[in-house]
């Protein structure tokens, strides 16, 4: 099966009763292996909410969300943790651990599994940092890095575990044009090499050209752009 993400008739609301505010209305969307899908839309349109549901961070109750052949609607925490472990997350803020060096931050992704030795983990993390162009900043802590460098560390962190899915929430929002384009350029190149599906939420139209497909989410409804 080549559909990595398959969402059918997803509905989601915040609150309940009279306070209920629908955020996603009958959203259907599927993403294939190796595909880069860009989701745009004004703020408050439900993009981030959609991303957190697909990433197994938020529980939705209506519709069907199949990620890596696992149904996330009504799933247990354990299933969601398995999905998260195969998902590379890139956040709007870099969200690096400020007590750790770039290298240690990247190898945090690999520490969840025992399969590797510490040496292998560090080697792999170093390789990934070289790939994002930070070979000479490996032992810097986040506060010693620029915004663009931090975001590249967080891309390395998301990709180092060879995830099947990469979810990126406004990865360029806090970057200037040049470092933003560099960052998504690296993301695209590395993701294509490993065949991961990418769902990228943004309202930064400067990076639209990296996508295979662009969708627009407005008031919780998907429209092809």
């Amino acid at each position: 099966m080549s559909k990595i993400i398959d969402v059918r008739h997803l509905n989601f609301s915040f609150g309940s009763g009279e306070m209920e505010r629908p955020v996603l209305k009958d959203v259907s969307l599927s993403i294939e292996k190796g595909e880069i899908v860009l989701m745009t839309g004004p703020s408050g349109s439900g993009k981030t909410t959609f991303l957190t549901i697909v990433g197994g961070l938020r529980q939705a109750s209506y519709g069907s969300v199949t990620v890596l052949d696992r149904q996330l609607i009504g799933s247990t925490e354990q299933v969601k943790i398995q999905v998260r472990q195969q998902t590379g997350y890139i956040f709007q803020q870099h969200n690096l651990l400020k007590a750790l060096t770039a290298l240690q931050n990247v190898s945090m992704t690999l520490e969840m599994h025992d399969a590797m030795t510490e040496r292998q983990r560090l080697d792999k993390a170093a390789e990934m940092l070289i790939a994002v162009g930070l070979g000479d900043h490996m032992n810097h802590k986040p506060e010693q890095l620029s915004g663009g460098q931090r975001q590249r560390v967080s891309i390395a962190r998301a990709l180092v575990g060879h995830p099947k899915i990469i979810l990126a929430d406004e990865p360029t929002a806090s970057l200037d044009k040049q470092s933003g384009q560099e960052a998504v350029g690296i993301l695209k190149k590395l993701a294509k090499e490993s065949g991961a599906a990418i769902l990228l939420v943004t309202h930064d139209y400067r990076i639209v050209d990296i996508a295979d497909r662009v969708l627009e989410l407005e008031d919780g409804v998907i429209r092809s752009a």
Binding site: G55, L57, I81, Q82, R84, Q85, Q86, T87, Y89, F91, Q93, N95, L97, K98, M108, T109, M112, R157
Partner: peptide, 13 residues
């Protein structure tokens, strides 16, 4: 808490 939430999103239990 942001760092911990990030790790949770990465799959830490």
């Amino acid at each position: 808490r942001y760092e911990f939430a990030t790790l949770k999103a990465m799959g830490y239990e």
